[in-house]
Amino acid sequence: MRIASLVLFAALVAAVPAQAAINGVAAVVNGEMITEFDLQNEVAPEAMRRQIDPKKPAQREAYDALTSATLERMINNIILTQEAQRLKISVSDSEVDNEMQQIMSRNKITPEEFQRQLQLQRMSEKDFRERVRSGVLRNRLLANMVGRKVIVTKEEVADYYNIHKQNFVNNQRVRFALIVYPPTENAEKQSARLRGGKASFEEVARKVSIGPRAQEGGDVGMVSWNTLDPAWQERLSLMEPGEISDLFEVNNGLKAQLKLIDMESGEGQTLEEATPQIERILREPKLQERFREYTEQLRKRAVVEIRR
């Protein structure tokens, strides 16, 4: 998991709209129910981020479209989880513990900060554990059934290296601060204040950020350049120390901003040294395509009844 996944806590749960028929059944997937309550819990954070109010007639169509798309994603997740169980792929409690520890370690989140984030998102640790378990289970299924079919050639690696050579270095480190705006915050307004010098980055981070180390002004400390997502590398490489980035989207469509604090240069990697990282980068879109195809195959075999 890369630094960009620091925001995985940010929009997991939000208040259910008052008009939700919480006792109704939205869909049944191979005998497993998705309730309206579950569905609206998934829809609410994205609706808030997009500022879609289902009570406003002009926005009802957009809200219904978002709800339908969310239901489709939930159906697919259940199908994948059921398939993993059918193939006797399992995830033990100790593996969930390990994954949660890695999430906190990689994202520099203390156990206390972890609990605070759960409280902010109105999520119990038990519910979060089950989401982690389901995620690991689906990833394991996809690794077994999809990953082995994805091939990245030496030619593809060399072409990518020649174009992005400047991003592959040894011992390079970067220090930056991060603000992740909650879905209820007017990110554009806060960004304008920052860029207009009306507020400091650290002040806004402490006040509104739901990202890591908010009380330290969002300063995540020194991190290895090679652990960053390529999109983050490109954004930071164009910045000077003290500069603040434009708004950009991270996990779940939340908006974020970066402030570059310091950059320690390193030595350029050879093609051989950079190959493992480049292979991971190039595999991702291929995996996503295979994942889509595999999910469609499972969906065709599933018995799905949408009741809403």
Results as ranks from 00 to 15, higher is better:
residue 58 A to K: 14
residue 34 I to G: 02
residue 47 A to M: 12
residue 52 I to F: 00
residue 73 R to K: 15
residue 35 T to E: 12
residue 79 I to F: 05
residue 13 V to E: 07
residue 27 A to N: 00
residue 15 A to Y: 06
residue 18 A to V: 11
residue 21 A to C: 09
residue 76 N to V: 13
residue 97 D to T: 04
residue 93 D to A: 12
residue 24 G to C: 08
residue 34 I to L: 09
residue 26 A to I: 05
residue 24 G to Q: 12
residue 79 I to V: 07
residue 13 V to C: 02
residue 49 R to H: 12
residue 41 N to I: 02
residue 81 T to Y: 02
residue 15 A to K: 15
residue 25 V to L: 09
residue 82 Q to N: 11
residue 70 T to I: 04
residue 73 R to F: 08
residue 63 Y to Q: 07
residue 62 A to Y: 06
residue 42 E to S: 14
residue 57 P to I: 13
residue 33 M to T: 14
residue 64 D to K: 07
residue 88 K to T: 10
residue 40 Q to S: 03
residue 97 D to F: 03
residue 79 I to N: 01
residue 47 A to V: 05
residue 35 T to R: 05
residue 50 R to F: 10
residue 75 I to Q: 01
residue 37 F to Y: 09
residue 16 V to W: 04
residue 69 A to C: 03
residue 50 R to I: 05
residue 87 L to T: 03
residue 43 V to I: 14
residue 68 S to I: 10
residue 17 P to K: 06
residue 91 V to N: 07
residue 53 D to L: 05
residue 98 N to H: 11
residue 77 N to D: 15
residue 17 P to D: 09
residue 25 V to H: 07
residue 60 R to C: 05
residue 45 P to T: 11
residue 37 F to Q: 03
residue 37 F to I: 01
residue 51 Q to K: 14
residue 96 V to T: 14
residue 47 A to I: 08
residue 69 A to S: 14
residue 71 L to S: 03
residue 39 L to K: 08
residue 52 I to V: 11
residue 52 I to N: 04
residue 81 T to N: 02
residue 33 M to G: 02
residue 18 A to N: 07
residue 64 D to F: 05
residue 91 V to E: 00
residue 17 P to Y: 13
residue 64 D to P: 04
residue 19 Q to H: 10
residue 63 Y to T: 05
residue 32 E to F: 03
residue 16 V to C: 14
residue 20 A to F: 03
residue 96 V to D: 08
residue 29 V to E: 00
residue 83 E to S: 06
residue 83 E to F: 02
residue 23 N to F: 14
residue 72 E to Y: 09
residue 38 D to S: 15
residue 97 D to L: 12
residue 70 T to M: 09
residue 29 V to A: 02
residue 29 V to T: 05
residue 80 L to P: 00
residue 47 A to C: 13
residue 78 I to E: 02
residue 13 V to F: 04
residue 66 L to H: 03
residue 15 A to W: 06
residue 16 V to A: 10
